[in-house]
Design a protein around this nucleic acid. Structure first.
Length: 419
RNA sequence: GUGACCGUAGCUCAAAGGUAGAGUCCCGGAUUGUGAUUCCGGUUGUUGUGGGUUCGAGUCCCAUCGGUCACCCCA
């Protein structure tokens, strides 16, 4: 029979690696709590219309990357979420979450985009997302960037750089867009197919093209920053002042536009030089128009998301080992009636908050000792027929050179705790 | 979606068209109740899959699936 494999671009995380994930998740969740963010959980599946309206019809995500299907049972068009912000805003509107004031929330979980997998890019990937709903900024914009910097410090990631831009209001962007299209059309013969197609759909995306020829055309284009009005500039300046006061280094990148339509004003990305072509580990920005666009009351908001796979890859490459929690004891049993005793002993010890592995699967003394060693346990707890008769346990240290002791079964817990 | 490179034992890798191997891991034994070290022995497999060329294919060709990296895109 042909064996089945995981779906392309969707990966198993085996226990050795999963331990690093657990450490990462514990660090992130503790960090979120320290900033006063609360968890919001939304379904992985949403109506397709949500993403079409939130992310934008002309974006790559909506045009070609969504896992969408028609649920014939209900006559509904459904989609596996390609990102988390749209769901958060939908939930906030649906449950009037910001009715009694703004809210800080976070979400986590898998996202799905049908792209060709490569380093740092998978069809199922995982994000932590942070959203400040109902805050006009720029104070929370600064908070988000400052808290990112704190997390990188805590994770021991020193090599990340911050790129920052303001893309203004929709009106300012529309005026700029018209000028940019004029400029690009003057150099029409030097544009590649993508850039030509985007003239109609999404010309701003051409700004961060990697094609050298297109880059030359873009380099001579007017800067988006020149089209920002007074209010947008004031917001941007205030953010820059707050970052300077917090000692955050950044680089203004006027070509940073981001791929989702809902952004306005602040946009930013944290980028690692150590991840190849997919260097962005975290990105986000302000999306003041999204609530209204999804039918809610106009509500300012801002947020960002980080990619677990990419951050964990950096942790792994930096030599980070998962914190190990080896068993305190591995219970070996041999002889008539010893399993019953061993089972009770293991439960007693676990009730004392000790990590105890009870040997299963039979085998001789020697092979059980080997399993005890391989488990990483600090002690082998041996129950043979002699011990059974006396109600005792032989306790053998496996990691230190101490002597093997023979203890009453109810004295074992203290012996293990004392180590 | 496009391109380049790569698929051999659970893992890391050899075998330059002529009998598929090593290390590691795993299992057993060296005092029938004692691990990790040492010694001895043992299983590693439809060479990703399907075709083709050839007396003969792990090796060459085609297709397909998968991996890696890049384009594209973004977390």
């Amino acid at each position: 029979m042909q064996t089945l494999q995981a779906v392309r671009g969707m990966n198993d995380v085996l226990p050795d690696e999963a331990e690093l994930w657990l450490d990462f998740e514990a660090t992130v969740q503790d960090w979120l709590a320290r900033y006063g963010y609360r968890n919001l959980r939304t379904p992985l599946v949403e109506h397709t219309a949500l993403f079409r309206r939130a992310i934008g019809e002309a974006t790559d995500i909506v045009e070609k990357e969504m896992y969408s299907w028609r649920d014939e049972l209900n006559d509904e068009d459904l989609t596996l979420r390609p990102e988390g912000t749209a769901s958060c805003v939908r939930a906030a509107i649906e449950h009037s979450l910001v009715y009694d004031g703004p809210k800080r929330v976070w979400y986590a979980g898998p996202m799905y985009r049908h792209e060709r997998p490569q380093k740092g890019r998978y069809r199922q990937f995982h994000q932590y997302g942070v959203e400040a709903l109902g805050y006009p900024g720029p104070d929370v914009d600064a908070e988000h960037i400052v808290m990112c910097a704190a997390l990188w410090r805590e994770l021991g990631l020193a090599n990340l750089r911050l790129e920052l831009n303001s893309i203004g209001s929709p009106e300012e962007r529309a005026r700029y867009r018209a000028e940019l299209v004029k400029h690009l059309e003057k150099h029409h013969d030097r544009l590649d197919a993508d850039a030509k197609r985007r003239l109609q759909t999404n010309p701003l995306r051409t700004l961060d093209s990697k094609n050298p020829m297109v880059q030359e055309v873009v380099a001579s284009a007017p800067s988006l920053l020149l089209y920002l009005g007074e209010a947008s500039l004031a917001h941007f300046d205030a953010l820059k002042r707050l970052l300077a006061a917090a000692g955050i280094e950044y680089r203004i990148n006027p070509k940073l536009v981001r791929g989702l339509d809902y952004y306005n004003l602040t946009v930013f990305e944290w980028i690692s030089p150590d991840l190849g072509a997919q260097g962005t580990v975290c990105g986000g920005g302000r999306y003041d128009g999204l609530f209204a666009q999804l039918g809610g009351k106009p509500t300012p908001a801002t947020g960002f998301a980080m990619g677990n796979e990419r951050l964990i890859a950096l942790l792994r490459d930096s030599g980070r080992k998962p914190s190990s929690r080896p068993p305190h004891g591995y219970v070996i049993h041999q002889g008539e009636g010893t399993l019953e005793f061993a089972l009770k002993l293991a439960e007693e010890l676990r009730a004392q908050n000790l990590r105890i592995v009870l040997h299963a699967g039979g085998g001789g003394m020697k092979s059980q000792m080997k399993k005890a060693d391989g488990s990483g346990a600090l002690y082998a707890l041996i129950v043979g027929e002699d011990e059974l008769k006396a109600g005792e346990v032989s306790v053998k240290p496996l990691r230190s050179g101490g002597p093997q002791l023979r203890l009453a079964h109810d004295a074992v817990a203290n012996a293990l705790k004392g180590s």
